[in-house]
């Protein structure tokens, strides 16, 4: 039984990793007022570029760096379309999703050709902590990108709640007019958050292609970016709650796999539904602690108009 719990939770932690990066990035973007539905496309670009770099150079750090840069460039483009061109954010995001999906597949086809594997980040035991019974096995014998994802939660919490920058981000998302009159550069803040979000989406992709799966295939993410956006709403724009959402979704998914593997006689289609149903139900049950979305979310800022 102990082995099973360890196995399931270890799976959950791994599954949660890409969601965490992408969701935290999206959270910060949304807090500043920009909705980006294109996360999945950026993740795919990050996954491809990291994989390609590692395949050609064998350098994992460089692969990660390239994913961050590519994600950042996509973030910049998304910011330009959404902030400067004030596009309808829900739809531009779908455009970026389709573009990223197509471009990453095209590049894969022309630059790599066939499905191959690389040796990615391997599990890294943290001294002392990894020796704690059960907990050590679950949490402290993962690869470095898993640690990074979990470290991101307190870091982003701190930035958002305890620093002037975080205050500015929130102000820009809640009361852009007021923030503007106080001299906060709204455009700059939004560019910053969206580019940062793009970088995190790039890492999310890399965490799949050079850490967890170590392969690249067309549409590798299979819609994970959309789930990541959904988890932002689950977490009500708070990093800690986003973490709990990602863990809930992933744990139920891990349990679901385990139910199937153990041969418990439920049609697989129903067990596969579980994570999605549980996420909705849990969120509905917590309805009372409702948090309003950032007031300016999905609304371009137009001074004095």
């Amino acid at each position: 039984m102990e082995a099973i719990i360890i196995g399931v939770l270890k799976s959950a932690i791994r599954l949660a990793t890409p969601y965490l990066y992408a969701s935290i990035g999206e959270t910060i973007g949304q807090l500043s007022g920009v909705l980006n539905l294109g996360v999945d496309g950026v993740m795919l670009m990050g996954a491809f570029s990291a994989f390609f770099t590692v395949l050609k150079t064998g350098n994992l750090g460089l692969g990660l760096l390239v994913a961050i840069v590519v994600g950042g460039i996509f973030g910049l483009l998304i910011a330009f379309v959404n902030v400067t061109l004030k596009a309808q954010q829900g739809i531009s995001g779908i455009g970026f999703y389709i573009f990223g999906l197509g471009l990453s597949s095209l590049l894969f086809r022309t630059m790599i050709g066939t499905v191959q594997t690389v040796s990615g980040f391997s599990p890294l035991s943290i001294p002392l902590l990894s020796n704690i019974p059960i907990v050590g096995e679950i949490f402290f014998r993962q690869n470095i990108l898993v640690y990074g994802a979990f470290a991101l939660v307190p870091i982003s919490w701190f930035i958002l709640n305890k620093t002037p920058l975080g205050l500015s981000i929130r102000a820009v998302g809640q009361h852009p007019e007021a923030a503007d009159s106080l001299g906060v550069n709204i455009v700059r803040i939004r560019y910053l958050t969206v580019i940062f979000g793009g970088m995190l989406s790039g890492i999310a992709g890399a965490s799949l292609s050079i850490a967890l799966l170590n392969v690249f295939q067309q549409n590798l993410t299979n819609g994970m970016g959309f789930i990541a956006v959904a988890l932002v709403y689950f977490g009500a724009w708070r990093p800690l709650s986003v973490l709990s959402g990602a863990l809930l979704f992933s744990t139920v998914n891990a349990i679901q796999i385990w139910i199937q593997v153990k041969g418990i006689n439920i049609p697989s289609d129903f067990t596969l539904m579980l994570p999605y149903i549980v996420t909705i139900v849990v969120l509905a049950a917590m309805a009372k602690r409702y948090v309003r979305p950032p007031k300016a979310l999905n609304k371009p800022f137009e001074r004095g108009e």
Binding site: V81, I91, G95, I98, L103
Partner: peptide, 23 residues
């Protein structure tokens, strides 16, 4: 051409047209 090109092209068109709306 690889079918992925079609996807990339569609995405570009969506982004450009949506982006031009503001102008």
């Amino acid at each position: 051409v690889p079918s992925a090109l079609i996807g990339a092209l569609n995405g570009l068109i969506v982004i450009f047209v949506v982006g031009s709306e503001y102008l």
